[in-house]
Write a protein that binds this DNA or RNA. Structure first.
Lengths: 169, 169
DNA sequence: TTATTCTTGACTAAATTGGTCAACATACTC
DNA sequence: GAGTATGTTGACCAATTTAGTCAAGAATAA
């Protein structure tokens, strides 16, 4: 149940662009170096975001990558969707026909709710929201300062019970 | 972002046991056949659930598997935790030290909230709840009847408004 | 024209997942 | 006890997915 590293790194890359852009294109090389990923790897992360019309690229000298929309118009769910694909945790959520049980299966309803819960978090936040909680520390600089303010209007909830999911692995 | 098939199949197996048990042990062979998974595969799914004290096994003739607690005492979050491991979608959620940015990283807060959102769904429901929405159809029997109660529409999309709002952890 | 930058696709290594098989342990029945 | 019915465990493997590199190319600016 891990997100791919592309999603993880891609989200940071977007945050990087939003913070360093200010209108002007940001060079992939610079993002890569700040976020400590290889350039060729970053290229593959950026690709889908351009195709998904979240980013725009400019080639040639002075070129780079910039946001195609204001950060407060970019939903985090869009980003994850482009980098990770649908949040469906099992196939039958999206394609009921992969399993003859789909119509009546109680677990399917559960998995759908899980997907909705995740989407509810991601769909109610924009890149701008994320920027607010970002204190701007660069990779490796590890400022031991600000712990995030508590957000969570949507999820307000956590488990009804402190369960032990720290076990295993 | 898929759950493992073990989690998916394990959840169904538990539902199967809850429905067919009635106190008496249910044979793995029967569960396997009803749920259309191989016996040897099912054994590996059941293992962690026994270790996690959700199930109890009885060997020998007349033996099988039974629930160690009443279904309404079995949280779905326990089940997923045993079969899938922690819901953390990226490593740093559980182990801040894998990344020097952890303390200040805005994305980490986001991933934590996603995990909480999932846990909120799973932690507020028991196996008994799941049984209620299960119309009892066997594998393959695909009864085109009962659509589960409410439970919003398809696909992981939309639903800006949350779900199981529970108290905080 | 040249340097700079993004773009794309082929490719590979490693990790993970899904699943089988076989040996074993335990319990019941006669 | 013997024999059979059940669950338990670990070794193992094939397939897939993921993470990441490399190299050729295309667009732009100076």
């Amino acid at each position: 149940m891990k997100l791919s590293t592309r999603t993880r790194d891609g989200m940071r890359a977007l945050l990087d662009i939003a913070r360093h852009g200010g209108g002007a294109p940001v060079r992939l090389r610079d993002i890569a170096s700040r976020q400590e990923v290889s350039l060729s790897y970053l290229e593959h992360i950026i690709g889908p975001l351009i195709a998904g019309r979240i980013l725009r690229s400019t080639r040639g000298s002075g070129g780079g990558i910039s946001l195609l929309r204001e950060p407060d118009r970019i939903l985090l769910s869009e980003i994850v969707s482009l980098l990770e694909g649908p949040l469906a945790t099992v196939d039958c959520v999206l394609h009921a026909d992969v399993c003859p049980r789909s119509v009546s299966c109680a677990t399917r309803g559960l998995w759908m709710e899980m997907a909705e819960a995740m989407d509810s978090v991601l769909g109610s936040r924009t890149l701008a929201d994320l920027m607010k909680t970002d204190d701007g520390a660069e990779a490796g600089s590890c400022a031991p300062t600000a712990l995030r303010p508590q957000r969570s209007p949507v999820t307000g909830a956590a488990s009804a019970r402190g369960n032990g999911d720290m076990e295993r692995q």
